[in-house]
Amino acid sequence: MNYAELTSLLGYILVLMVPYSLASMGIMVGGRVGVFNVSTEGVMLSGASAAFLVTYFSGSYTLGILSGIGVGLLIGLMMTFFANKLKIDQFIVGILLYIFATGFGSLLYKEIIGITLYPPKVNLLPKIKIPLLSQIPYLGPILFNQDAIVYITILIALLLYYLLFKTSFGLKIRSIGENPRAADALGINVFLMRHIFTLIGSALMGMAGAYLALGFTGIYTNTIVSGRGWISIAITIFGRWNPLWILVGALLFAGVEVLVYTLQAMEVSLPYQVLMMLPFIITLLILIYTSRKAEMPAALGKPYDRESFEE
């Protein structure tokens, strides 16, 4: 393997980090207000489908990403309506929306593109070379020759970290996920914040899907997400619902995935299916290891009803 191959391979880890971390941060912001949105896998597929179609026909990446976010918001609207307004069990709503969004994503593509011999393609998001920094040997081409969304993702993580852990607004947000009754008693608008952050979370998941199509594959297929949404749930738990740790977890899984592709390319004498299982086996191991001491928002998954009698 030469220098160019190595840096491009390692650069891929950052590319793959994006969908994992955007989706995980989507789950995290919902979780911080007590809403566990497990529809991620489906929302990502819908986001990928919408973003691909919009960019394919308009040629605009911005519109593509925005439509991914838009689809996320739309499904988020359903999530928050059923889970926070009607107070239906969050997992049931999440699973149903996963099924719905998965169907919606593939339907959209099939209706508009139909079945083709060769799938239509868009060019990948252009890489932005940051002057000077990208000249640093090894690190330069890996870290500073990426597309805009890679940088934006890292910015989002830093911003969310600042907001959640350094401001009193963040204290309010986290208190809702820990003990909504207590937050409510202090005059914090539990319902509004749950709506808002469920929507933001779902939007991030949609954006994660959009990036898969525009920044990673350049085509849309029904298997484009292939379990990354589920793995993101594990990353969120592994990352202790903290945006910075989520970045670390996302990097880790992106690394595993790149490793799988490398092994495939090197034609290791392992069946393809075994290699594909690797990320999931690692997920399982990490969850077994971390789940015992995992710190979850205490009110995660619990609907809040002000006038229900106390436990």
């Binding site: 600042y162 907001l163 401001t167 009193s168 204290l171 208190s175 202090l186 005059g187 914090i188």
Partner: peptide, 14 residues
């Protein structure tokens, strides 16, 4: 201090 702030103060560094 939880919930004792509002407006712009909310988003400043605590």
């Amino acid at each position: 201090i939880l919930g004792s702030t509002s407006g712009r103060e909310d988003f400043k560094r605590m």
